[in-house]
């Protein structure tokens, strides 16, 4: 041992290395140990971001599905209301002969109420009612855990597309995220769905009604002469003279499973042709 200690060159060199390694490991220990305490689960921040993304995807799916359901409801409602979301000038007292139900008059004397009406706007009004209602239900549902403003949308509706552009983003705050710059997860709750709205059928029906009103033949013959692909015409005559209740079936609409196709219901007033002298 004495000889070992006397051999200073070897002693210095080997124990210098030992000392350096010891210092490095102690330094490393304190560095890692402080981080280990905050990592009870590795990657909690990342998991928060991933679950916020999942939450936003779920909300976007609900919005998409809501818009599909609202659009389908709007198609049926619009048909029941004869293409008008609210009361129109041509509407007369509801009782029409044997048909005991309120119906929308499309004409009154010489006035054609279906002209100059944008049926896309009428569809949008009904669509919005359903859409807002479903989003309110979602916001009140505890498991949704998110608030989507139903009035945050601008809509564009065509025959086979509905787009809802969100004005503001929805933000999901992170409960305990350490990174200050990423304190919120933000996404735009816009949607675009391929969906047959059938609104163009109303314009086609309007053109056909023009022909019916100008037609000099009996109504059954006038209807038979119409050429409107995708639409099936059915009418009944009221006990009151010159009042016809129409139901035009939209055959291209297929948004519900076991139910009948939507029908455009309206009433026409047309005096029967007076026989010549």
């Amino acid at each position: 041992m004495r000889r070992l200690l006397r051999n200073k060159k070897g002693f210095n060199w080997a124990f210098l290395m030992l000392g350096v390694v010891l210092i490095c490991l102690v330094y490393l220990f304190f560095q890692l140990n402080s981080k280990l305490a905050s990592l009870s689960i590795i990657g909690p921040n990342q998991m928060q971001v991933i679950s916020a993304k999942k939450q936003s995807s779920d909300a976007l799916f609900y919005i998409d599905q809501t818009s599909r359901l609202s659009a389908c409801n709007a198609i049926y409602d619009l048909g029941e209301k004869g293409g008008f979301a609210s009361q129109i000038a041509c509407n007369k007292p509801p009782f029409i002969g044997v048909i005991d139900a309120p119906h929308t008059y499309w004409n009154a004397k010489d006035e054609k109420c279906y002209e100059n009406i944008n049926f896309y706007n009428e569809f949008e009004k009904l669509f919005k009612q359903h859409f807002i209602n479903y989003l309110r239900i979602y916001n009140a549902f505890p498991a949704a855990n998110m608030d989507i403003d139903p009035f945050n949308y601008e809509f564009m509706i065509t025959d086979d597309l509905i787009v809802g552009s969100a004005i503001k983003n929805v933000e999901i705050p992170f409960a305990s995220l350490n990174i200050a710059a990423l304190s919120k997860y933000s996404f735009k709750p816009s949607f675009a769905i391929d969906f047959k709205t059938g609104v163009n059928d109303y314009f086609k029906t309007g053109e056909a009604v023009d022909k019916l009103l100008d037609c000099d033949k009996p109504m059954a013959q006038c209807v038979k002469d119409l050429n409107t692909p995708g639409l099936s015409w059915h009418f009944t005559q009221s006990s009151m003279p010159g009042i016809y209740l129409f139901e035009v079936t939209q055959n291209s609409i297929n948004c519900r499973f076991a139910e009948a196709k939507p029908k455009i219901k309206f009433v026409l007033q047309k005096m029967p042709p007076v026989p010549g002298p």
Binding site: L4, N7, G10, F11, W13, A14, M17, V21, L28
Partner: peptide, 28 residues
């Protein structure tokens, strides 16, 4: 010459510290 023996002790010491460090980081 005792230098080889000293190197040996040094290496054993460093190895021992590495083993300690390995056991500790098992918590992670």
């Amino acid at each position: 010459d005792m230098r080889p023996a000293l190197y040996l002790f040094g290496i054993i010491g460093i190895g021992f510290l590495f083993i300690l460090f390995y056991i500790w980081q098992g918590a992670a």
